[in-house]
Amino acid sequence: MTTTTTIKQDQMVEITQAVWSSFLGMPLHVVETPESSAAYGGQSATATVHISGGWNGSVILSCSTTLARRAAVAMFQTGPDDIGDEDIADAFGELVNMIGGNLKCLLPEPSELSLPTVSLGAAHVVTIPGARLLQHVELACDADRLHIAVWNRREDARPDLQAGLEGMIR
């Protein structure tokens, strides 16, 4: 397998679609006109994994809590009424773990993948000090949008390139 220090959009799309079709059985396609995450209706789900070692950065998955709930329902194969916030966090965390793990395989080794962190609720901001946005893509699952971003953290990162996800998550 060839490793690289960058990630291409089509690699992110291919990996995310593979995860989505295998475990959710729902369609997911690229959108040409990304929506403001304000379209999440103020209630969003954000899941993050960090990669550290031969390459340093983070993979962030975000969407409305509506889509995160749909994903959890599909993964647990149960009814919407049987799904709680803990189940949504578990399922959404596993999604970013799979996407991040597969992206990590494309990057220089050796490196470690963190356990996922998940937040659900009103609009929030995620910051990764010293990181810059490397690549991002937005996909549509019916009327719902899913945003995937890869942030790269470098020793020589300039302060003006530091990441602030405000505006991407809100």
Binding site: M1, N97, M98, I99, G100, G101, N102, K104, C105, E109, P110, L113
Partner: peptide
């Protein structure tokens, strides 16, 4: 059974 299936892993 893991998300990381690189040759090194």
């Amino acid at each position: 059974v893991t998300s990381e299936g690189s040759p090194a892993m």
